[in-house]
C-alpha cells in the first residue's frame, strides 16, 4: 500500500481505487474484471467479500452481494481471485469486508491465507480502530495492513485515532450515507478535505458517490486517490457477462480521462 501511494506521489497524480464485489457475475469473471481494471489504470482494487447484511451499502452493491452469495461465493473464492490476479499483475489488492464473515473464518487464518494469496491490506466497514487491536496484530504478523475510515461526522479525537491506526492510507467517506453513485459531490466535501488535510499525516482516498470525470477533476488536487465502487459494479451488471470486464474498464478510463 505504501508503495502505491509513494508511486502516486512521485508521478504527481491522484490515484484511483476500484471496488468490485467478488463473485458477481462469477469468480472467473471477477479475475478478468480486476485485471482489466488494473490495465485501465486503477492503482488498487478492493476485493469485496459479499455479505448477507451489508448495512453500509446502497442498492447497487446490495444487489451484487446478493447475486454473489446466490452463486455461493466464499472468502476462499476471494483468495482464489487474488492469487490468480497476483500471478499476472502487481496492482495493490485490498480485501473489503464486513466483520462477521471474517470472525467466522477466524482472523488469524484469514490473515495467513490473505497474505499467501497476495492481498496487501484489509478494510472492514463495521470494525472501528478501538475494537481492532487483535485483528491489526494478526494482520501485521503476516505483513498485511488494515485501513480505517473517516467520515464527515468524525470528531477531532477520532481523526487523530484513525490517522494513528490506519496503514498506508485513510479512506475518507465523502458524505453521510451509504455507498452508491451520486450525480453531484457533497457541497461541503472540498472544504472538509482541506480541513482534514491539515490534521492527518497519511494519504487520503475519497470514496462514496464518485462516479464520473467531473468528480475526479474536482478532487484530484484535494486527495491522493478516489475510490470508485457502485459505478463499476453497476457497469458489470449492466449487460452480458462476457462484456463485464470491458464495461468496468471503460468506467475507470472515463474517470481518468483516458477514454
Amino acid at each position: 500500500m505504501n508503495r502505491t501511494f509513494a508511486h502516486l506521489k512521485k508521478e504527481g497524480r491522484c490515484g484511483l481505487v476500484a471496488y468490485v464485489t467478488c463473485g458477481d457475475p462469477g469468480v472467473d469473471a471477477t479475475v478478468e474484471i480486476v485485471l482489466a481494471l488494473a490495465e485501465a489504470g486503477a492503482d488498487a482494487v478492493e476485493l469485496g467479500i459479499p455479505f448477507s447484511d451489508p448495512i453500509a451499502d446502497g442498492p447497487v452493491i446490495q444487489a451484487a452481494s446478493w447475486r454473489a452469495l446466490e452463486r455461493g461465493t466464499t472468502i476462499d473464492d476471494v483468495f482464489a481471485v487474488a492469487r490468480r490476479v497476483r500471478a499476472k499483475s502487481d496492482v495493490a489488492l485490498i480485501a473489503f469486508s464486513y466483520l462477521n464473515p471474517i470472525m467466522r473464518y477466524e482472523v488469524d487464518r484469514f490473515a495467513a491465507n490473505a497474505a499467501a494469496a497476495g492481498i496487501d491490506s484489509l478494510l472492514v466497514t463495521d470494525l472501528p480502530p478501538e475494537s481492532a487491536a487483535g485483528a491489526r496484530q494478526a494482520l501485521k504478523s503476516r505483513g498485511l495492513g488494515i485501513v480505517f475510515l473517516l467520515a464527515p461526522t468524525s470528531s477531532d479525537a477520532r481523526v487523530r485515532l484513525v490517522d494513528r491506526s490506519s496503514d498506508g492510507f485513510i479512506y475518507y467517506v465523502s458524505t453521510t450515507g451509504v455507498t452508491g453513485a451520486r450525480r453531484d459531490l457533497d457541497a461541503k466535501l472540498v472544504t472538509r478535505l482541506e480541513a482534514i488535510r491539515g490534521q492527518v499525516s497519511k494519504p487520503l482516498a475519497v470514496g462514496f458517490g464518485i462516479s464520473k470525470r467531473e468528480h475526479y477533476e474536482a478532487l484530484e488536487d484535494k486527495c491522493e486517490a478516489v475510490v470508485v465502487g457502485s459505478a463499476i459494479v453497476r457497469a458489470i451488471a449492466d449487460g452480458e457477462p462476457s462484456g463485464a470486464a470491458e464495461r468496468a474498464a471503460a468506467v475507470v478510463r472515463g474517470i481518468l480521462g483516458r477514454g
Binding site: L99, L127, P128, S131, L150, T153, R158, V173
Partner: peptide
Amino acid sequence: GGKFVPETLMAPLD
C-alpha cells in the same frame, strides 16, 4: 456488546 458500526455512526453514538 460493543460498537461495531461504520465510522459515520461512531461520533453520533458517543
